[in-house]
Design a protein around this nucleic acid. Structure first.
Lengths: 321, 321
DNA sequence: CAATTTATGCTCAATCTGAGAATTATTAGA
DNA sequence: TCTAATAATTCTCAGATTGAGCATAAATTG
């Protein structure tokens, strides 16, 4: 067999600063152009006892960061999306999600923080449905639907669009981040699709067409989409937000952090009720000063809950649009 | 680097017959003894365009079965749990879950169906907490807790036992299948732990100790635990049970199937209410004959729901014990 | 001190859940 | 044929949860 096999370990390292979720990226020179990439490196069987240890190693080396909360996401292995160094090497990608409190990148590392909605602009609905959806995505998807030859194929495509991007019968499901990315990729609306020489992408190549969002190296935007979808789901049933927050925080900060991740606004009073009921936090008697209105109490995550109830998340009392 | 790297593709193929979930196993000769194994085979970079296609290929070859519903579970890569063919090859395992309707194994294949609770007997609580938990597991775990030297370590162990196996403050969480398996493995109560030369396992090696449940080859019992935990979670928010049921079925059959998977009995009337509310099924006007009491109507899964609502699962109206 | 801003508390109807009683349609057997 | 046993199916009812919004409290700004 003339094929070599390598396994890459990739990390989507997420933090929330203010009201903006960000990932840590490293510069990557890829076929001439330079694009941002997630920190990653190959599994070295001799050196890395486990996959996760290998990942921590590479991340430390490339960013100077020591990860604490790490979770495996998915293993990607499609031959034609791997962006091969040469045609006789097969590369798998094992993707991880890490949650951290944002820190300045330590000296001597070229890593930088980037807002995630630069890469997935259609996922942020906090200010209502974003313009890019109405003005560019929905029309382009409508084109894609009608560009199918057979009527049956058209119906399939329309159904898929409706369910992933929401329509009359099906509301927007904020966890389907990956489905949406994959659909846009298949429809050729993503720069990476053209890079991978997708047929559908070629259709747009000579029109005045702009791809959606900033690209990332390799298949890293797909990893980011996987990470965001998974995190949005997990928030609801595990107290993971607290990995992203400082030791003490106000309830409003907590709410803003959750909102920034799930991409929608939440009903404030009901959000508090849910957090309170789950007994996830406890008040310190201290208050946030140096803010505008009435000062808010500072709360702290009750780490004990991890040993008490089985699966408390924050709950998402959504707001009608 | 003197290390070779291989990636194995492993399939937990699940069906429910009557009220018993089963997996498809193949015979495997492993270091002299023969043990059942999940169907698996190495990724062949030249032949397999995607990981999933590789998996389907191996499964077809070993069992004659064509899979439809397939889902990636996890990628395992710990060096010291891989059961290496030789010390200079590193083997990763990408594990999948497949759901099928049970069929007879086709001629010429040595595969056979095995009830999953043979391998994870503590997970079936349909008849209340199983005796093995009270008589063997809880005592053995109590020993394991007190066998820790430092008090701090003991407290940690006790907390971990309480949260994974349930205690006063925390009820039994039926999704923590993997946590429970891992804990038993670490405590040396699982045959595979001894096979992997775990120190904790050695403690039991010369007493009149019997390991829990039947072993599987490699780390396949861990894969099974991952599969069951994931499926138990997914049932609640995606209509996946129907992959396991025939075209038409009674509501009671549906309930029994769900119960067999989640491992607890459910409240019948409320279960119906939930299924009805989700509009998951529709009655055919036909009835199940050849049964004892009043004949039950046959229902059919409304495949349309996949294109309607975002995420309907069956819901689990649990019964107090 | 008034206007503004934000935090926090409280209410109320609608819906969902847990538990179980009551009713209906069959089969097995006296 | 009549009765008991077995299941399916329908209903009820109290308690908890949710969605929505009003009201009040405690600060800052001008």
């Amino acid at each position: 067999m003339p094929y070599a096999l390598t396994v890459g370990l990739h990390a989507a390292i997420l933090a929330v600063t203010g009201e903006e979720p960000r990932i840590l990226t490293v510069p990557e020179n890829e076929s001439g152009r330079s694009a941002a990439a997630l920190p990653f490196g190959p599994l070295e069987p001799a050196r890395h006892r486990t996959l996760e240890l290998g990942l921590l190693d590479w991340v430390r080396e490339q960013t100077g960061m020591n990860l604490t909360y790490v979770e495996q996401l998915y293993t990607f292995g499609d031959r034609d999306r791997a962006l091969l160094p040469d045609a006789s090497t097969r590369v798998l990608a094992v993707a991880y999600l890490a949650l951290v409190r944002e820190r300045r990148v330590t000296e001597g590392h070229a890593a930088s923080w980037q807002g995630i909605y630069r890469f997935l602009p259609w996922e942020d609905r906090r200010a209502g449905e974003p313009a890019i959806l109405r003005d560019r995505i929905r029309p382009a998807l409508a084109d894609w639907v009608s560009s199918a030859r057979e009527p049956k194929r058209r119906r399939q495509r329309r159904g898929r669009v409706d369910i992933t991007f929401g329509a009359v019968a099906a509301p927007w499901d904020n966890e389907r981040v990956l489905d949406r990315y994959e659909l846009l990729y298949e429809a050729g609306l993503i720069a990476e699709a053209m890079r991978d020489c997708r047929p559908s992408a070629a259709a747009h190549s000579n029109s005045a067409f702009r791809e959606l969002g900033s690209p990332l190296a390799f298949d890293h935007r797909r990893i980011l989409a996987t990470a965001l979808g998974r995190l949005r789901g997990k928030l609801k049933y595990r107290p993971v937000v607290f990995e992203l927050l400082p030791e003490t925080f106000t309830l409003f900060q907590l709410q803003r952090t959750v909102e920034s991740l799930v991409g929608v606004r939440l009903h404030k009073q009901n959000f508090r009720r849910l957090v309170g009921r789950g007994a996830l936090v406890e008040g310190t008697a201290r208050f946030e000063t140096a803010t505008r209105g009435r000062p808010a109490e500072l709360f702290r995550f009750r780490r004990e809950v991890l040993h008490e109830r089985s699966a408390p998340g924050v709950g998402l009392p959504s707001l009608p649009e």
